[in-house]
């Protein structure tokens, strides 16, 4: 029973730290690293969360594609590459074109459902075109794993995280902490399976 009480206390303290302190924000900024917004061969926007059956993108997927369009408008690369599930890339492509991007500048990689598959799909698309230097758009917490995979696939990666500070509301901070834990588990899983 003493062990259970200790576990309960640890759970309660972890909850308080996650919700009511800037811990999640600090971790978020740390995982994002420093953005390197320099001219590149392509802007690669990884998928995140897919799209609903009615084609509505998740918040994070939407943020990423908007960031990609922004980078294109800043003239940092001539090509926007979208990866992820077919539904997600379709919805994002429609959005990018709807925002005024020329159709020829928006390319969808082959369907991919995991970050590892996305890296492979983008490699098959860009390396034969000799486009090796990329601006990688991902959430701050996803950047270390996504970047490592793309570097391993042969790219020179310039990180362009979507945002680095994170939320300030307790519920959103809890959500971010949950995402960080899942991302760290994914990192460990990729290390164990030799993907990284």
């Amino acid at each position: 029973m003493r062990g259970l009480r200790l576990l309960g206390l640890v759970g309660l303290l972890a909850f308080a730290a996650a919700a009511f302190t800037p811990l999640a924000n600090r971790l978020n900024a740390w995982m994002a690293g420093e953005a390197r917004l320099e001219p590149s061969d392509a802007i690669v926007v990884f998928g995140r969360g897919g799209a609903d059956s009615d084609g509505i993108l998740t918040n994070r997927s939407l943020r990423r594609v908007l960031r990609g369009v922004d980078l294109y408008r800043d003239g940092l690369a001539p090509l926007l590459v979208l990866s992820g599930s077919p539904e997600e890339t379709r919805a994002r492509g429609n959005l990018a074109r709807g925002l005024g991007m020329p159709a020829a500048a928006v390319v969808s990689a082959a369907p991919a459902y995991t970050t590892r598959e996305e890296a492979e799909a983008v490699r098959r698309l860009l390396i034969p075109l000799s486009r090796r230097t990329i601006l990688l758009v991902a959430d701050p917490i996803d950047m270390p794993r996504a970047r490592a995979l793309m570097e391993r696939a042969g790219f020179v990666v310039r990180p362009a995280p979507t945002a680095a500070t994170g939320p300030s509301q307790p519920e959103a901070r809890l959500g971010l902490c949950r995402d960080i834990l899942i991302e760290l588990s994914a990192w460990a899983y990729y290390r164990l399976t030799g993907a990284l």
Partner: peptide
């Protein structure tokens, strides 16, 4: 706290 510990488990 015991109940919370169970929840964590």
């Amino acid at each position: 706290l015991e109940c919370l510990g169970l929840a964590v488990l």
